[in-house]
Amino acid sequence: MMKTQAQLNILYSCVDEKKRGNEQFVPEHALGCILSGESHFLTAKGTQVYGAGTIGLVRRNQLVKSLKVPPPGGQFKSINIFLDQDTLRQYSAENHIEATGHYTGVPMLQLSLDPFLKGYFDSLLPYFDHPEGLTSTLSELKTREAIELLLRFDYNLKDFLFDFSEPYKIDLEAFMIQNYVYNVPISQFARLTGRSLATFKRDFQKTFGSPPQKWLQQKRLEEAHFLIAKRKQKPSNVYLEVGFENLSHFSAAFKQQFGYNPSSLQTV
C-alpha cells in the first residue's frame, strides 16, 4: 500500500512495501527527509542508500531511479519540499542574492546533522494528519522558510539554489551511453544534453546512425539479455531496470528482437 499526500509543492509519502519511484527525472530542486525506512537512489554514478533521519537536497535536472524500502514490519515515510524556479527567482530578487556562477558541485547533498532543518521537518508532521491546515499561504511560507534555513546552513548554497541556467550542450554519445536506462521522454534527453528536440534528433542520427527511439529500445534489450542470460536475473526484475514501462511490452519487444521469449533464457 502506498499513501501519498501532496499540498502544492510539499509531498508526504507512506509505503508499507518496496516501491519504485514513478518519476525518473527531477525537474525542480527537492529538499527531503526520510522519517523511516531507506531510500535507494540509482544515478549514472552508482547507487546510494540513505536511511532514516537523512536530510538531503537534490538538484534539478537530474536523472534518478529511486526505491523506497520500509523497515522490517514498518512503513517507509518521507517528506519532500520542491523548490520551484519561480519561487527561487522571486526570493533571489527580493533578497538581492545571486549565484556567483554556474553550480559545479555534486547534485545530491546530505544535510542530516543540522538541527534547524530537522526541526523544520518536525514542524511539518502535524499537517499530514490535518492536511486542510496546510493552506496555500502556509505552504508558501514553509517553502521560503526552507530556503532561509538552507542559506543559514551554508550561504554558498546560493550557487546551488539560484543558478537558473539551463543545461549546456554536452557530448551526446557519452551522455546517452551512460543514461539510456532511464525511462524519460526524448524531449528530456534533448534538454539534458543542451539541445532543442529537432537538434537532438539530428545529432543523434549523425552520432548513432539510428533514430533515438529505435536505438534506445535496442540498447535496452541488449542490456536486458545480458542481465538475464549472464547475471541470471528474472525478466520481471529486469524490465524496469533497463527502461521499459511494463513487462508485457518488454517481453513482446524482446521476442521480436531475439526470436525467443526472455523467460526461455532462464532454462539455458
Score class of each variant (00 low, 15 high):
Met2Ser: 14
Thr4Asn: 10
Ala6Cys: 09
Gln7Glu: 11
Leu8Ile: 09
Leu11Asp: 03
Cys14Phe: 05
Lys19Phe: 12
Gly21Trp: 02
Asn22Glu: 13
Glu23Asp: 15
Gln24Met: 11
Pro27Thr: 10
Glu28Ala: 13
Gly37Asp: 05
Ser39Ile: 15
Ser39Cys: 10
Ser39Arg: 13
Phe41Gly: 09
Lys45His: 12
Lys45Tyr: 06
Gly51His: 01
Thr54Ile: 09
Gly56Cys: 07
Gly56Lys: 10
Leu57Ala: 00
Leu57Tyr: 05
Asn61Leu: 08
Asn61Gln: 12
Gln62Glu: 15
Leu63Phe: 12
Val64Asn: 05
Val69Lys: 04
Pro70Tyr: 02
Pro71His: 02
Pro72Lys: 07
Phe76Met: 03
Phe76Asp: 03
Phe82Arg: 10
Asp84Trp: 00
Leu88Tyr: 02
Ala93Gly: 04
Ala93Cys: 08
Asn95Ala: 07
His96Ser: 15
Ile97Asn: 02
Glu98Ser: 13
Thr100Ser: 12
Tyr103Asn: 05
Gly105Ile: 09
Gly105Pro: 11
Pro107Phe: 00
Pro107Lys: 01
Leu109Gln: 07
Leu111Ala: 06
Leu117Pro: 08
Leu117Thr: 09
Tyr120Leu: 06
Phe121Gly: 08
Ser136Val: 11
Thr137Lys: 14
Thr137Ala: 14
Thr137Ser: 14
Leu141Arg: 11
Leu141Lys: 12
Arg144Phe: 10
Ala146Ile: 09
Ile147Glu: 00
Ile147Asp: 00
Leu150Ser: 07
Asn156Glu: 15
Leu157Met: 07
Leu157Glu: 05
Asp159Ala: 11
Phe162His: 06
Phe162Arg: 02
Asp163Tyr: 07
Phe164Asn: 08
Glu166Ala: 14
Glu166Trp: 04
Pro167Gly: 03
Ile170Phe: 02
Ile170Cys: 14
Asp171Tyr: 09
Asp171Val: 08
Asp171Ser: 11
Leu172Thr: 06
Phe175Met: 05
Ile177Gly: 09
Gln178Phe: 01
Tyr180Asp: 07
Val184Ser: 04
Ile186Ala: 10
Ser187Cys: 09
Gln188Gly: 00
Arg191Gln: 14
Arg191His: 13
Leu192Lys: 02
Thr193Leu: 02
Arg195Gln: 09
Phe200Lys: 04
Phe200Ile: 09
Lys201Glu: 15
Arg202Leu: 10
Phe204Arg: 01
Phe204Trp: 04
Lys206Thr: 15
Ser210Val: 07
Pro212Gly: 06
Gln213Arg: 15
Lys214Phe: 08
Trp215Met: 05
Leu216Asn: 03
Gln218Ala: 14
Leu221Arg: 00
Glu223Trp: 05
His225Gln: 11
Ala229Thr: 13
Gln233Val: 02
Lys234Arg: 13
Pro235Phe: 03
Ser236Lys: 11
Ser236Pro: 00
Asn237His: 14
Asn237Gly: 15
Val238Asp: 03
Val242Gly: 06
Val242Leu: 06
Glu245Leu: 12
Glu245Pro: 01
Ser248Arg: 12
Ser248Thr: 12
Ser248Cys: 05
Phe250His: 04
Ala252Thr: 13
Ala252Ser: 13
Ala253Thr: 00
Phe254Cys: 01
Phe254Gly: 06
Phe254Ser: 04
Asn261Asp: 15
Pro262Asn: 04
Leu265Asp: 02
